[in-house]
Design a binder for these strands. Sequence first.
DNA 1: AAATAATTTGGACAACCGTCAAGACGGCTG
DNA 2: CAGCCGTCTTGACGGTTGTCCAAATTATTT
Lengths: 212, 212
Amino acid sequence: MARQATGAAQRVAVATEALRDEKFNARRIELAEAALETLGELGFARTSLREIAQNSAFTHGVFHYYFSDKLDLICCCVRHYKAKCVTRYDEVVTTAQSRDELTEGFLAKLAATLENEARMHRLWYDLRSQAMFEPAFRKDVLEIDKSLEAMIWRIAVRYAELGNKKPASSPAALYALFDGLFQSALLRHLANDEKAVPDLLDEVRRLLPTIC
Amino acid sequence: MARQATGAAQRVAVATEALRDEKFNARRIELAEAALETLGELGFARTSLREIAQNSAFTHGVFHYYFSDKLDLICCCVRHYKAKCVTRYDEVVTTAQSRDELTEGFLAKLAATLENEARMHRLWYDLRSQAMFEPAFRKDVLEIDKSLEAMIWRIAVRYAELGNKKPASSPAALYALFDGLFQSALLRHLANDEKAVPDLLDEVRRLLPTIC
DNA sequence: AAATAATTTGGACAACCGTCAAGACGGCTG
DNA sequence: CAGCCGTCTTGACGGTTGTCCAAATTATTT
């Protein structure tokens, strides 16, 4: 009986603790999302915890309560950012019924994210560069890079499938190609080069048939 | 006569001023080179003028005497870095007499610079990302990017020439591909992935015949 | 050799940084 | 209602930052 009571109490304790953890984590994500706003605006180098707090509804102390460290916060930001990004083209991939449909759907998403989420993308490139200096970032960054490579690969496989072929290049090379093109287009776009987006689309449109 | 004397004096004045400018600029480059040492070690975000000075033979005041600004210093660093980089493969391109010779020469240089100048390369990627946030960097970065694209294109043209063909892709796409591959390999190399270099070489070896 | 200019030094400054801790607030439990 | 606990605020701390400047040193000209 005593054992049972203790067991029940323990179960309740575990449950409440899990609930607390969940709530705690939800708050972390909320804070990370607010931090991403400022990070995307200023970049890693110029962003301080105080600046993040001032551009959000939170005080700078809260961030230290939920994150052990500045790096901890930014790692959480990166990880959260990943979840959003990696599925960007999946709907197009699954619904497209022809090469043309896939191509146009992909290009549309590409142009849209380049123009509307430029700040998030430049932050990603910033943090990936930081990972070359800061070991604490490397694990997350390499993991995200792998996910993005897989994302691009899913497009290529589907594109090949719709032509009854197989992709001609490796996942790594294909990701490198698209990543390089996107990075260059992003920089040009941020520098107010109005041809950045159409040039990227032309390039990708020309490239897609050659890789399968 | 008076006119002539004035003219001569002016000529001398112009000459000495030019000499002064040259000396001034030589000092700037000397300082920039010292700064690159620390920048390559710590990255843009964590490098301060005092840290640069402490790791060099100069005091921090000198940097402010020769550079109006921290950005001014770093722009000078980037511009100086460019001159070194852009001709890296030119000797291989001009001396190679066969596709194999060009391929092996290129791969050897590629592996060497990735391993021996990793710090300079990561600084380049860092600064290119910074250019997405800091407009002051954009002009120089875009210019260097164009030079690197041309450098890669010279390799491709020569490679095609040695096979009596023409490159199949555009300069932009080709540069994007190699840049993406190199960036990925660099990150992996810095994360102590021993397969980073051989994987890059394998990939490039496989890719070269397909682009021409 | 004297005077003028260019260069270099090292310290002072205010502003900012990440971090921390003492206390306030508010809901929940006993 | 009293006490506790998780959450949050606020202000302070030592250290670092970019910038500036007056004085010292060196080079150049007269």
